[in-house]
Design a protein around this nucleic acid. Structure first.
Lengths: 233, 233
DNA sequence: CAACGCTAGTGACAACAATCACACGTTCTG
DNA sequence: CAGAACGTGTGATTGTTGTCACTAGCGTTG
């Protein structure tokens, strides 16, 4: 509401690579047009099919992007962290939201309305370039994921998932994590498969000493062989 | 090379909805920077992994976009017609081409280099908006396709494909086509499945009087029931 | 016309995954 | 502390799909 709040929003927006190329004035403009919204863990942020007129940048917390399959199973498409943005597509083309997003932890989001962004867009060609880059990235990721889902078997997809979940976020230090705490059901929902099959696969890998399963943790022991599995044997 | 050639390119570029919002001057600029290239049926236009520095708009002909799966099977992602553009992604972000494209018929393409477009982009904010729209569309289509592949069974995907192949192109009249001539192997490669299974499925549909198979043609008899199948029973 | 290539049709079998069913432990909670 | 809720480990069954094998028709071409 005041200068202090705006400063904070500017900083939060700066965390997203989309906006870090803007000059101070443009960032200030964006901050003026945007607002901060908080969600508690478990809250729905938006739902598939709703008209979407805004995008969100995550300042704090984690959100989960999901969809329901035709057979009504919920699958997790992605978990997003601070610095990530979501809802861009619906905002940019003014169409329906194409997924569900809910807060996994308490979250602080910076919300940007369609009208506001279009406005700033007009005066800042650099911002369009950033958006175009973002979208290209999205297209590439989607296409890749599509091929994976269509043509890799469960072990390969699961291996890919484990690797993806354990790369260090760009912000932090370099070394990949070795432990994860996701439940097997969660893993299953992320690769569009069942808990049972994920379990059987993980067991096999434990026997083969690729991973360790200990009191709820999954520990990666042989990253290289997982990489090999991820590329179809 | 001369005014005549440029006029032609302008017209060809105008066929793509991306460029039809430009004013004459901008279109003229683009025409100056672009060039026409012809390919014979069967020619490779570009290959996955190559560095990509240009995009193409189809003026005449049909091209096929394919990929190789990890297990080395070639799948058809899409067939594109006059007015469609391809190669945008690699051009826009300067990364590798993410698919193979080959000419299905003799083709006339208008090629636009990355540098040229970036140049025009700077002076024509409207063009960025168009590109952003195009990319949004791409993202939505990819995501949709991903879900389809992951969670619909063969009959549903095949039904979807048949419906997609028989909607009239936006340019032509309204009524959906009823006949197609794609071979069953082609259909299989478009839905990431085998010819044998496509065949079995089509046979069943013929018995159920959903379609007719006659001397190489596939004739749709009951579009409504196909629509039903396409949405998971 | 014989040989070849391409498309279509179909049966047999194996591999994989979905589903159901159940047992076991932990942790949370009334 | 009892019981619910959840995560985990596994077996049995069933259905779908991929692979292989073989047959057959049709058109091109040498």
């Amino acid at each position: 509401m005041n200068t202090d709040g705006d400063l904070k929003k500017e900083k939060l927006l700066g965390k997203s690579f989309i906006f870090d190329a803007l000059d101070d004035q443009a960032r200030q403009e964006l901050a003026n047009f945007s607002y901060v919204k908080r969600y508690a863990a478990g809250d729905k942020i938006f739902t598939m099919g709703e008209p979407g007129q805004s995008m969100m940048a995550i300042a704090e917390g984690t959100v989960r992007v999901t969809m329901f399959t035709p057979s009504d199973r919920e699958v997790t498409l992605n978990d997003l962290q601070a610095g990530d943005v979501f809802g861009e597509i619906a905002m940019l083309d003014g169409q329906e939201r194409s997924a569900n997003v809910k807060a996994l932890t308490n979250c602080t989001l910076v919300v940007l309305e369609r009208r506001a962004l279009l406005d700033v867009l007009q005066r800042n060609p650099i911002l369009s370039v950033r958006l175009i880059e973002l979208l290209c990235q999205r297209v590439r990721r989607s296409d890749e994921r599509m091929i994976e889902i269509a043509f890799l078997d469960l072990p390969a997809r699961l291996a890919k998932l484990l690797l993806r979940l354990t790369v260090a976020p760009p912000a932090s230090e370099e070394k990949p994590l070795a432990k994860l705490s996701q439940s097997q059901s969660e893993l299953a929902s992320m690769i569009g498969n069942t808990r049972e099959n994920v379990n059987r696969c993980l067991r096999k890998w434990q026997k083969a000493e690729l991973i360790n399963l200990q009191d709820g943790w999954l520990i990666i022991r042989d990253r290289d062989r997982l990489e090999a599995l991820a590329h179809g044997e």
